[in-house]
């Protein structure tokens, strides 16, 4: 395989998958610690009406109005959950279930009733994304990786994910201590005057933005897997939050690379002339890494615990 073919067709897809995995994987740490693992799944449904509204207002499928709409929808959902929980006097899980499904349904209705249905949103796309469709025809050699004017010609979905990743990392660095505090002891945070609700809402908005950026590129399966697997894997390998964040980033990013390579070239290695869904394979790789960690992790792994029991 020559360098230009790899750069033109495989490289942008690898970047897309890895970056989508990275931003979701990093934020997933806080979701898992706050026992809100499925928030990533839920939020990718909640944002639909926001995305549709963003499209209806601006008439474009540009990323900015979509992101703004998604963030706004996430904020509305947080408020609605609180409202349902208080007025309905139900547990938070039930309130979330009601709000998320209703908002998704509202999004579907909006989509159908307004003629926005022409915008591509079909089941296959939603489940698997379109990782493989990312191409970078301007690239002709390895040197192009250092040339800004050629890099700028990368697919817009890749550039969007670069921006979202930078925003996610900046958010975690800026609010690291608050995120740690409200994830561990929200009541104590409130007594300090550091509002656990405010920090929690910020987190959900970031989750919504990351979910939308990643959702469009790699589909819902990968988004849900990436919010949970890397964080859960990293948690097994360390007892420090900072180390956990770094490890989860490495796990997410490398599952992106390994998953794509397996999907694109794996079948050929065993003699089939085809490739399989890259997003699906990335999620599978992340799952395999987690299983390996569950068995071999130094302190929390099955083997280590067996040994401890026998000692």
């Amino acid at each position: 395989m020559s360098a230009d073919i790899f750069l033109q067709f495989d490289f942008p897809s690898i970047l897309l998958g890895s970056l989508a995995a990275l931003c979701c994987g990093l934020l997933g740490n806080f979701l898992v610690l706050r026992r809100q693992s499925l928030m990533g799944d839920a939020i990718s449904h909640v944002v639909l009406p926001g995305i549709v509204l963003g499209f209806l207002i601006t008439g474009t499928v540009d990323s900015l109005p979509m992101m703004l709409g998604a963030g706004f929808a996430a904020l509305v959902s947080v408020g609605l959950i609180e409202l349902v929980r208080r007025l309905g006097k139900v547990e938070p899980g039930a309130a979330m279930g009601v709000v998320f499904t209703s908002m998704f349904a509202a999004g579907v209705l909006l989509l159908e009733q307004t003629g926005a249905a022409g915008v591509h949103l079909d089941v296959e796309h939603a489940l698997y994304g379109n990782l493989e469709s990312a191409i970078w025809l301007e690239a002709s050699g390895w040197g192009d990786l250092l040339r800004p004017e050629i890099l700028a010609a990368l697919p817009v979905s890749v550039l969007r994910l670069v921006v979202v990743n930078m925003a996610v990392i900046a958010f975690i660095l800026a609010f690291y201590k608050e995120l740690k505090l409200v994830s561990f002891d929200p009541l104590f945070a409130d007594t300090l005057g550091i509002s656990s609700r405010f920090v929690g809402t910020l987190l959900i908005v970031m989750v919504a933005v990351a979910a939308v950026a990643a959702f469009d590129a790699v589909g819902s399966i990968l988004v849900i897997a990436m919010f949970i697997c890397p964080a859960a894997t990293a948690r097994l390998l360390t007892d420090r939050l900072s180390t956990q964040l770094i490890l989860s980033g490495i796990v997410a990013f490398s599952s992106g690379i390994v998953g794509y390579v397996f999907a694109a070239f794996g079948p050929a290695w065993i003699g089939y002339d085809m490739s399989v869904s890259a997003a699906g394979m990335i999620a599978v790789v992340a799952g395999i890494i987690q299983v390996v960690a569950m068995i071999f992790a130094p302190r929390y792994g099955v083997i280590a615990r067996r040994r401890l029991q026998r000692a």
Partner: peptide, 10 residues
């Protein structure tokens, strides 16, 4: 008992 002591913190 109000917090989760499995949290990754020293």
């Amino acid at each position: 008992s109000s917090v989760d002591w499995d949290f990754p913190a020293t």
